[in-house]
Design a protein around this nucleic acid. Structure first.
Lengths: 156, 156
DNA sequence: GGTTTAATGTAGCCAAGGCAACACTTCGCG
DNA sequence: CGCGAAGTGTTGCCTTGGCTACATTAAACC
């Protein structure tokens, strides 16, 4: 109940009301797509690795009950990202594949970036799972610049 | 159905099932706390800046209807993060202030880090809003190391 | 002091994303 | 070929986090 922390910080300037609202709206929307992106990414991975994506495997990978996965898959179908026929596995539409490719690249970049920063591998994987959905193209590009530079020998 | 995974592709290695599920569970739970953290952060900011935090202002900052804010505030109360009496504004408990301080520091670090990486200011603000909720202590520490190093003159 | 206006609160609706319980297909194996 | 196990699908329930519409309270201004 006591602020007490007014420790002479450079006092961030007062927020511009509309802009802050817009930022939060944007973060909310990213949060909303995050699950969809996870599903698509996992389905793509299963299709590539195993040749098929079964609801139970998807659920297992996500740590969720199979009923939940099936319900979400229905939404993916409704939204034109996946196709599926009863008992026949799940497939991606072209749009689904596009999203999957994008997310896979993004995931790899984020993980590589965190590792390059010195974050322990297990932590990097966990954090990347959350961060990847909130990284804009501009920030992703900055990550890549950093990686390229680090690869060039850190010297710059 | 065909394993075929012996091919020694440089491809990311097959996921460890339980671990991946745990990672996703972790990301889901971070997603769930994100909203709470945003509310607490904003309430703290309003209290420090204006001396009071009114539901309408909170709602405006978040870009949601006031009814939504009020409902969420009730949840914060239920969870022991805030206190509020009808028509008397919202206050934070000690736990609420703890969370607020943590999130504020985290936010500032993430923004500073992105800026240092060369991300444009507006983008950094937007991305930070999403990223800050998914950055573990270890990763935050890595961000701080980077900042310190950059401050020391980039050369290292 | 009464009236208008702004803020606050309440109610009811919706979609998402969880779950458990139950029913129905498929498929592998004896 | 049949049967049982594993996978799939359905149902109904819960909580969150949005919304609108309406009711109520507090504050501001004659």
């Amino acid at each position: 109940m006591t602020p007490q922390d007014d420790t002479a910080l450079p006092e961030t300037s007062a927020p511009a009301p509309e802009e802050e609202a817009a930022r939060h709206a944007s973060a909310r929307s990213a949060r909303a797509s995050a699950l969809t992106e996870d599903y698509v990414e996992i389905i793509a991975d299963l299709l590539e690795r195993e040749g098929e994506a079964r609801p139970t495997d998807i659920a297992r990978r996500l740590g969720v009950a199979h009923a939940t996965a099936i319900k979400t898959i229905a939404r993916l179908k409704r939204d034109g990202l996946a196709r599926a026929r009863p008992y026949r596995g799940v497939f991606l539409t072209d749009r689904g594949w596009d999203m999957a490719r994008k997310m896979k690249a993004r995931h790899q970049t984020v993980v590589a970036f965190l590792l390059a920063l010195g974050v322990p591998a297990e932590v990097a994987e966990v954090d990347a799972e959350g961060i990847e959905h909130h990284v804009s193209d501009a920030t992703l590009a900055a990550f890549e610049r950093f990686l390229a530079q680090a690869a060039r020998g850190d010297g710059r």
